[in-house]
Nucleic acid binder design. Structure first.
Lengths: 166, 166
DNA sequence: CCGCCTCTACCTATCAGTCGATAGGTTTTG
DNA sequence: CAAAACCTATCGACTGATAGGTAGAGGCGG
């Protein structure tokens, strides 16, 4: 049954997006799901495995969602995705946090964060070639805006910092 | 003698900028300085105290440095500061990491990160009033660019993402 | 000058709590 | 019946933090 496994991934994703890799434990996640920490290890042997799996699922889910909208609306779509997450529960991009913490992260986890940014930037300025750095600029603005909105404890900061992206 | 205290702050700043709040311990810092962890507690009773002190010193130092340059060159100055830190040892903005992790941080530490962004944005678009959100946009771009450069393990990402900042 | 005192800095030793992880038994499910 | 899921119990390592002792510097009265 994949439901427990998904619940573990859900809980872990929430935890990481709130406090980062160092901000959660197997016991935290287990308690969220309603099982014991040993059972989390049964599905994901190590913390590295679990975190990497969360990041991979996160990336695949978002990339797929954005690929469903036309090219010219993708920047707005990304902005809306992050805006909603921030408004609803004050959480930022999973791979944004992982990127920030990357100096103290296991290599496979950093690799997943890297993959996210490679694929995410590719969904923007895919072919227009004038500025192949547009994707980098857009995600830098979005990630930084989330980070600042959280630090300043004001969701409006995200809107104001990214207003010119639309 | 304030030298040890400064060394503790230096080591802690390096540690946090690399791996975040959850990525260092009193024993790590003590080993860096060449003393015992109990001696770190002597200068900074709790991890919250230590981290908040590091963030405050960091903020004061950078704000003062930027205030020494004329208004129209400040964006470039901030960009240069962060670019150098990233190039030299792959470290990002201290308060950027803290902002990302803020969901699992003690309140006084978050307050210091907040203070940084309030003062930092104020050094830009201080009076020209046309866009009082310019500071937010600039720092979102800078913080996000650092984060991505680290995640993608490529310092050039920072340059490319912030090239349009002037 | 000496002896004394106090303060700061640092130490050793230890605490209880939590961490990731494992071994091995039990329950559920197909 | 076999496999997958979940459990209890425990491990050693590490965490932040505390208690209490030691060494040395500086001030001060005599």
């Amino acid at each position: 049954m994949a439901v427990t496994k998904d619940q573990i991934l859900d809980a872990t994703e929430r935890r990481i997006r709130d406090g980062g890799y160092g901000g959660f434990s197997f016991r935290d996640v287990a308690a969220d799901v309603g099982i014991k920490s040993a059972s989390v290890h049964h599905h994901f042997p190590t913390k590295t495995d679990l975190s990497a799996a969360v990041a991979r699922r996160y990336t695949d889910r978002l990339i797929e969602a954005v690929q469903g909208v036309p090219d010219e609306k993708r920047i707005g779509e990304w902005r809306q995705i992050f805006r909603n997450a921030l408004r609803q529960d004050g959480r930022m991009c999973l791979c944004g946090i992982l990127g920030a913490e990357s100096g103290a992260l296991p290599e496979p986890v950093v690799a997943e964060a890297k993959r996210f940014f490679q694929l995410a930037t590719k969904t923007i300025a895919d072919k227009d070639t004038v500025h192949q750095d547009t994707g980098l600029r857009v995600f830098a603005a979005l990630e930084g805006a989330m980070l600042m909105a959280r630090a300043m404890d004001d969701p409006d900061v995200f809107d104001r910092a990214t207003a010119s992206l639309g």
